[in-house]
Design a protein around this nucleic acid. Structure first.
Lengths: 159, 159
DNA sequence: CGCCGACTGTTTGACAGCAGATGATTTGCA
DNA sequence: TGCAAATCATCTGCTGTCAAACAGTCGGCG
């Protein structure tokens, strides 16, 4: 609460100026804040962000190899190991050796996983509203469009 | 959707759909890509992102305590210690005990630091152009404005 | 068949970021 | 004055992420 009581130095409100002219920094700071909010939400929900994404994708497109999951979700494959470990231990997912190619598993969502996903899914709109409530629907649409373009054409696509 | 027992692997292009409806995820993925680009640029330049920001702020507003630097630049104070250590070891910064309050240092940029900053500063526009070249000037302006609003009103300010 | 390269999942090591504790110092208040 | 609380810089431990190495498997080509 004692934020403005004692600003000893003269560096008052330097950050807004910086963020205004450095698009990269504004992007990273905003992302960090949103990521923290998402992690906190996931902790309350008891299902990690990565776990949620994996369940969501398995439910949407059917059984996948860990490789496909990590590529499509942009999660490193060494991280995907731990995510699938946790999900399997909780019974939300099964790993079955592919008979055609025994290097890969077919990761499959279970009924338990579907129920868990439905629970977690239900709270997503409230989380998004809570996080972006200061933006108008127009601004959210613009932001989504611009980020989508950036991801498609630029860095997020194929490095 | 009912899926056969056959692995519907190669769930092609799932990510774009996800990013379109999950603004938080699009933001984080784009930020991660941009942060990687910034780190790579900083590595080539030989001056870390945090070091660059500190020099820039010191040059702009004059001597500061590490506390002020970390607050304004949104960098954790325990991380700021290492950044100032590196800058001091390189001779780009001096730490002088404040006579009024001997708990804090007055961190001051040196002539060497100013020269180093000028060098690094010169390559920033090219980096930004390289990273965001797929966006039109209009889109960059919109993105900057929306992120600024998000940082001011929402997460970046006061949690 | 036998070797070589490519791919899948896993483990390991290095490293950044953050929360919390600590020592030195200042400030507030009785 | 004197003592408790706050502040600053620092250190330590923990967590999560990434790169690289590794073992098992598939495919091709002689």
């Amino acid at each position: 609460m004692a934020t403005t009581t004692r600003t000893t130095d003269r560096g008052a409100a330097y950050f807004p100026r910086l963020a205004a002219e450095r698009l990269d920094i504004a992007l990273c700071r905003a992302s960090a804040a949103v990521a923290r909010a998402a992690d906190a939400h996931a902790a309350r929900e008891g299902l990690g962000v990565g776990q949620h994404l994996v369940l969501q994708m398995l439910d949407a497109v059917g059984p996948c190899s860990q490789q496909t999951l990590s590529e499509e979700l942009r999660i490193d494959r060494s991280v995907m190991v731990g995510i699938c470990d946790d999900l399997e231990r909780a019974g939300h997912v099964r790993r079955e050796r592919n008979v055609r190619d025994r290097r890969s598993y077919a990761v499959t969502i279970t009924d338990s996983g579907r129920r868990r996903l439905a629970e977690a899914q239900a709270s997503i709109p409230a989380f998004l509203e809570d996080t972006f409530h200061t933006l108008t629907p127009d601004e959210r649409g613009q932001l989504s469009a611009i980020l989508g373009k950036l991801l498609r054409t630029g860095a997020g696509g194929s490095p």
